[in-house]
Design a protein around this nucleic acid. Structure first.
Lengths: 113, 113
DNA sequence: ACCTATACATAAGTTTATTAGGTATAGAGG
DNA sequence: CCTCTATACCTAATAAACTTATGTATAGGT
């Protein structure tokens, strides 16, 4: 329904990586978790989430294993050591980005308050 | 050369709008200003900048006028009242986004320091 | 028997960004 | 005069990410 704001594009990977740092999760769980924890703000559609998970696994950032829990078949994803490293890098990049953005736009009263 | 980080992708419009809030600028000036003020961090390529300016003018966020300064022909862009409004909205959305992101990921020591 | 929630997945289309060009002029240095 | 660099605009082809719209399957409730 409501299209993602432009800025939310680009946050997909770090959101997934960050959640998986805490514990292994499966796709549906990730999307529910994101939506609930952010009061519906982060709604990651399946058409974005699943391809992203596949891509990240392809990159070697994630590993996956099928489990059956409560009679339900789920594909759990976990961070690989490389995924850990990528998370740290992406977090550093986010920090840099926010600093640079703030330095540039900080003069605008927009960012006050 | 160096590809933009994923996260920098959604910042195009607010960067342009914020610069133009202070004063009218022309395309080349915007790109130089961004690069210099951020120590080369924000390098907005012409292939992104000019179509963005055209799109934003099409949307009614910007107006433009040609001027000749120092014997050089330049197309100056200015914020329209609608552009002002859009800037305020986008700034509010950015604030919300950063709050939500921080709330979700803040538990990770990644964001500390 | 039907409906909803859970759970995975992909294909088609849109938007945005990158790459790689093209045109034109001013000014500096040979 | 010629060439090179910086200035200054622009667009077309490609790539990447996101949205929308489906499709499949099963568990559990009514």
């Amino acid at each position: 329904m409501s299209p993602r704001d432009q800025m939310r594009k680009g946050s997909t990977e770090i959101l997934i990586l960050s959640l998986l740092k805490k514990r292994s999760m499966y796709g549906y769980e990730i999307s529910q978790h994101l939506a609930r924890q952010s009061d519906g703000y982060f709604e990651m559609k399946e058409g974005l989430l699943y391809p992203a998970l596949h891509r990240m696994q392809q990159n070697g950032w994630l590993s996956s294993d099928w489990r059956v829990v409560d009679g339900r078949r789920r594909k759990y994803y976990s961070l690989t050591p490389l995924g850990q490293k990528v998370l740290d890098e992406q977090a550093a990049e986010w920090k840099m980005f926010l600093e640079k953005l703030h330095a540039l736009l900080g003069g605008n009263e927009i960012w006050a308050g």
